[in-house]
Amino acid sequence: MRHPETWLRVTPEGLLCEPGGFYIDPPRPVARAVITHGHADHARPGHQAVLATPETLAIMRARMGEGAGASQQAMRHGEVLRQGEVTIRLVPAGHVLGSAQVVMEWQGSRAVVSGDYKRQPDPTCLPFEPVPCDVFVTEATFALPVFRHPDPAHEVAKLLRSLSLFPERTHVVGCYALGKCQRLIALLRAAGWDRPIHLHGAQQPLCRLYEELGVPLGELRPATVANKAELKGAIVLAPPSAIADRWARRLAEPVTALASGWMRVRQRAKTRGVELPMVISDHADWDALNRTIDEVGAPEVWVTHGRDDALVHALALRGIRGRALHLVGLGEDEDETPAEAPEGAPAA
């Protein structure tokens, strides 16, 4: 058996599968890329050939048009492909619609690159499937034991309680346009919210695409053309950067909410001026990361980005070899990146 460290390498262009001749989620344009999911820090424009799930390719086309790749190859879950001497499979990662883990086998050893993933149920995408492997390449966005995401239904219930307490006020929820937005809508629908949900312009194209791809979201309306009276007591979904900025002035006395795993830490919410923090994340929390690593049974785990220090330490306690890859450019999702360090005003 050839250990994966002999054929899967970190290069300046990104994580390279050498015998297959392709990169996974490369930060720079390359000849051949396998893309785990459509978030901007994983799916960059300008690659020659792109291999991904049909949903991820559709998302890339919607977001970057021509830049989505000169040649695109769709691969469904369950299909197997030989690329050079390497066999490749894409397995659901449970992160967003189309998200996949890349399972690679070469000369008797198997490596799995998870991309970003979560283990909580999500009605808008297929659930994560653990695949036993020799090396598991994982993210570690929330790899500190303080991050334990609560049941998202509980967080949505908080929003609905606030709406009943402040029925005149718009509730604007900051959420990333791809994945979080549609998951929130699905959670709201599951909680019985059947009124129209209003969207910031940046949220609309991907919601339309999700619906085309078979994820029903109920009645959606643009928030930008709605009048103030219509927005009283409405739920508006907007990019996190818009909720406390000039755009939000059109809303009726808004309660600002933000749906993100970082909202578990108070200072994060305080710094962003969030009134209603909602701890909803599309990443695995501490418990889920550790459980997943135990389930795939890999004796060795590589950490792409996030809190690799804590995760590698925790793995060592269980006799698992951990290695930090320090991949650059990952973890830059707008709502999943820590806000700038808070700094007070210069002393007057």
């Binding site: 500190l144 034991p145 303080v146 830490v265 200072q267 809190r307 220090d309 804590a310 330490h313 925790a314 306690l317």
Partner: peptide
Amino acid sequence: TDPVLLALSHDYV
């Protein structure tokens, strides 16, 4: 809790 993880967490929070 593990002392290293507690220290990292306290430092972060």
